[in-house]
Design a protein around this nucleic acid. Structure first.
Lengths: 189, 189
DNA sequence: GGCTTCGGTTGATCTACATCAAAGCGGAGC
DNA sequence: GCTCCGCTTTGATGTAGATCAACCGAAGCC
């Protein structure tokens, strides 16, 4: 149970646990050399973060709650033999393997495509966890979304309004309902 | 041993093997719904691709040689027990874990930053494999680079020339020598 | 040799989006 | 209730880079 803005772990911390998000939302972030945030992803209930703990002795990014959240710490036994004895390795291979599946990047192409892909992906991930994927609670700030999509707050706001006017979505503050997302036809070659 | 343009595997193919690049260069690619290429990455000798085979029964991207290349197929035993008996699982956890480490995206920010990050990353990866990381052979086409960086051929060309004029790099066709890469100060907030 | 093709470079123009600026709006504290 | 402050929205202007177009050199072919 952590407050908005609190870190589950920071880049460089000794990595000894996984964390499962149970409620709320957690963002993972890289800090650039000159101290700027680059948001890697937003994690919804059911997702596990900190899996670099398996191959690195320190965490490689920051995990920060975006709203009041509940997380579950899963300490790792130090000896990999212990895992083997417990028969957990296949499960771990599955967890890591799933994370290693190459995914098409969200933040590519026109700003509108990025926002659409973001909404689609977010809904998808909720659905996969058995949650409602049509009524999204985007509890992260607009500027977090902009950062993630490599664009600007104003642009995110304008595009959400535009989609709202087109009746593709219904925006009300942090709540966004997906009515009928238009196809994402990548304009470029 | 495969020719430029040949596929090692395609998205949807049954995934039964890993592939290690020995010589040359292989690109991994996603095809969008409307049939456009989105290049995920370029792989240099020593790197292993197709690791989604561990958790998916089909490959999730295309792997295509960018030049005449030599690759080594590593078939996977179908039974995960076999792996367990052979004591290979820890090695696999390491391989997958390394792939699961969250990495800062290359294609973000201004076009110049992207190109610099690309050159830096490419050199880094060669060095990690014991190869020369200062003298790069960018055997993929400029338009492949542009695709990967989510920009255009003309922009890539202009920025490489610009860096050449600044004597940060030395460009001669597909060969690029890194003289002294300027720091990548992410202009944006 | 000359001709074509194809990848790369260079220049001129156009546009999506960043930037700058100001005004809503909702929640916290009083 | 009212004020303050941070987040969001909306509008006006500037710019990085996309687009359009021409050109160049190397490779293949007749």
């Amino acid at each position: 149970m952590i407050d908005s803005g609190t870190a589950l772990f920071r880049s460089g911390d000794p990595a000894t646990s996984l964390f499962a998000v149970r409620q709320g939302m957690v963002k993972t972030v890289h800090l650039t050399a000159d101290g700027h945030e680059r948001i890697i992803g937003f994690h919804v209930p059911g997702e596990v973060i900190g899996i670099e703990a398996f191959s690195s002795d320190t965490y490689r990014c920051e995990a920060i709650a975006v709203e009041h959240s509940v997380c579950c710490e899963l300490p790792l036994p130090q000896q990999s033999e212990t895992l083997q004895v417990q028969g957990l390795l296949p499960a771990i291979v599955d967890l890591l393997g799933t994370a290693a599946i190459p995914k098409p990047p969200i933040a590519r192409g026109l700003a509108r495509e990025r926002v659409l892909r973001f909404l689609q992906d977010h809904g998808e991930r909720l659905r996969r966890r058995g949650l409602n994927g049509e009524r999204l609670r985007l509890t992260m700030s607009r500027s977090d979304i902009a950062n993630f999509l490599d664009t600007r707050v104003e642009t995110v706001s304008r595009i959400l309004q535009q989609l709202h006017r087109e009746k593709a979505i219904h925006v009300q503050g942090s709540t966004v309902e997906l009515i009928e997302l238009p196809p994402i036809d990548t304009a470029a070659s």
